[in-house]
Amino acid sequence: MLFAHGFGCDQEMWRHVAPHFEDRYRVILFDYVGSGRSKRRFRRSKYQNLSGYVDDLVEICTTLDLRDIIFVGHSVSAMIGLLAVQQIADRFTKTILISPSPCYLNVGEYLGGFERKEIDQLLDSLESNYQGWSDQMASLLMYDAAHPELTQELSQSFCRMDPTVAYTFATATFLADHRSILPGHAIPTLILQNKQDRIAAEVVGEYTSEQIPGSQLVYLDNIGHCPHLSSPQLTIDAIENFL
């Protein structure tokens, strides 16, 4: 099982869910370049759209020579996963999409949920939180140096992303339109849709499910966009049922 985290966080997001599957599956977690503890250099030119992330995902699959992959992708990783399947379909057996959205913008009749100016508000939040981000980072690093016994605190601090990375990733994520790839996705697919999700609303999940032939849509009684964090048991049960 290959778990791919969403925008804003890192593989730690899976900590309540992934371990549950470890006894029966080879569980693979990773951080996207620029997120979590990834080591490769983040190049704006490569990651200005999702294809850079897709290439990396494909590289993970081919380098580790993964077969019969059950792909679990949260949020933007749902689309990254579908795009990777286009390239190496025979390596995948099932795809599980948590809170997916093929397009966050409202386009014509389609209601992705956001207007362009609202995405700009997001970019603005990312930019203005640069200081907060670096302050927190600095204080944590300082703790580490002055009090070696607090190293624990540092290693437990998750989901920190460099603002440049966040800005680029956000642009690639929220301004893209991947609706056209949905009908061609021919692998058994489960879609987990939150009851109250401010990023990917129910209509978006329903649209995604209608467009992916034969996909299964399951509603989770969860508030928010990250059920694997706020309602891990519901998430595990839904995945188990599907598998």
Partner: peptide, 9 residues
């Protein structure tokens, strides 16, 4: 737009 930041960060 800030709500996305809330949900993701």
């Amino acid at each position: 737009g800030g709500r996305i930041f809330y949900e993701t960060h």
